[in-house]
Design a protein around this nucleic acid. Sequence first.
DNA 1: CTACGTGCAAAAGCTTTGCATGCGT
DNA 2: ACGCATGCAAAGCTTTTGCACGTAG
Lengths: 138, 138
Amino acid sequence: MPDWRSVLREKGYRLTPQRELILGAVEELGHATPDEVLAHVQERASTINPSTVYRTLEVLEELGLIRHAHLSDRAPTYHSVTDHEHFHLVCRRCRKVTSVDVEDARGFMESLTTTHAFNPDVGHLTVFGTCMECEEKT
Amino acid sequence: MPDWRSVLREKGYRLTPQRELILGAVEELGHATPDEVLAHVQERASTINPSTVYRTLEVLEELGLIRHAHLSDRAPTYHSVTDHEHFHLVCRRCRKVTSVDVEDARGFMESLTTTHAFNPDVGHLTVFGTCMECEEKT
DNA sequence: CTACGTGCAAAAGCTTTGCATGCGT
DNA sequence: ACGCATGCAAAGCTTTTGCACGTAG
């Protein structure tokens, strides 16, 4: 797990308090929209601006420190990559998000490679559906 | 494959030229954003309004006549359901979209059901990645 | 010191909503 | 004739952009 400071420096990016706060927010929040990240960092530094959040999330993702997925039909959510690489299950009814180890998708991913000449990005994958709890409540 | 007229009528929706045109546009275009649908229908009926397109797509999806998927980080795209049910592979570099029969994902989907108590909606699934053509151009 | 990063404000999408008119039933 | 559907216009959100200042290196 590479140190975020070195990663930024190596690519010629500067170390700023905003970048540290935003990366910290993403790690703390788990899965957060830009908006939620903004709200979180503003608790500590109220003058931080939305545009800084968007710009910083973009940089951090480019550097591979965070990733985003689409857990709703609307905003993207960002999450840390320091944890295991994972993909997501999202229940449409209760909105619950489950993180699943990429290992559980390996067979499927490999079949896409061999039969469709496609190299899938499993870390970005989101599967929508219904969790059994909700299913039973029908 | 149910007739769209009957489907609308059975649920108490009215048959309008706009609805017919919009459904037709989705079927012709394959995978289209609301914007593309609008442009297409306006070729025939220039007064059709964006809000009608949004409202109609929502109705048609609710009735199961069309579905949407997220083929880019931005706009949703709608497609007909009269074809085979399918999911999508999207190449991030060349933006190519491949439709894949759901059968190819069955094993994976079943494993999610059994090991994660989750009932996946395979028709909404989109897998991002890189196609081999682009991969080789590196 | 240099120029990258930030804050601010305005603009740019995209989508939704309220309302009066029109049209399908 | 009744009331849903549409067109229009305006508002709402989220995200992007231009610019001048501040600050990391």
